[in-house]
Design a binder for these strands. Structure first.
Lengths: 119, 119
DNA sequence: TGCGGAACTAACAAAAAAGTAAGTATGGCC
DNA sequence: GGCCATACTTACTTTTTTGTTAGTTCCGCA
């Protein structure tokens, strides 16, 4: 049987689908109201639970816990517990999430440009 | 009264808050399950309502309508209605959303890298 | 004995997002 | 007259996400 020759529309479509999957995956990882914001706070240095909480005054403890857990499960942050009393837990970016820094910087810049352009 | 001299921690904090605001703004604009995906589909060329819908087989008509309306209201897509029967409506990226192309490309690339790295 | 602090956890409630299914307008075509 | 197609609306339900409040654990300290 002869193979069907593909037209360019099909290959454009398929490429788009692959990109959509990669993008969906990325959105799953860092999407939502909080995740990127949490990561940004860890950009400069590792922080403890309460430090993140204070830095992001509008997040609740519960949400912060949930989001940190998901980020950890997805390998985007690492969590280190020090056996002290009271407990001390530090969160920091991983290699994988460090790769995102230039991306959120660009997003910030975009936001800054267009947020000003309205106001 | 003497002005209080600022320490570097304070200025780091403030910078972080400003960035967070810009980023929150950006997340508001393009966050959610669908918006970036819709924009990506418009990257190569303008599309009609049903073309977008077919390209994104998992979105419902309702959601597509709602998301398109928000994107339009936020200036991220333009909507052109042709006075024909049956109606024809075309959507395309605006200048503002075109600026996001390199950002979602990078996100795609990141997603591709780490999606493979698991599987 | 009992308070304090850090980092949670659990139970429940409210709000927001998404899905389902049916209906609308228009005018050409059979 | 009835059907087709496109691009939506509308009403309603389900699911997901967030928020609220109240514990819990551990040990040191007054």
């Amino acid at each position: 049987m002869a193979e069907r020759k593909e037209n360019s529309t099909n290959s454009v479509n398929r490429k788009c689908i692959v990109e959509s999957n990669d993008l969906s995956y990325a959105i799953d990882m860092v999407g939502g109201r909080w995740k990127l914001l949490i990561l940004v706070n860890l950009e400069k240095k590792k922080l403890r639970f309460n430090e993140i909480r204070k830095a992001m005054s509008s997040i609740t403890e519960r949400m912060l816990t949930l989001q940190l857990r998901e980020l950890e499960a997805d390998g985007l942050i690492s969590r280190t517990v020090y056996a002290e009393v009271p407990p001390r837990v530090e969160y920091e970016l991983t290699e994988i999430s460090t790769e995102l820094i230039p991306i959120w910087k660009k997003l910030c810049a975009w936001g800054a440009r267009h947020r000003k352009a309205r106001a």
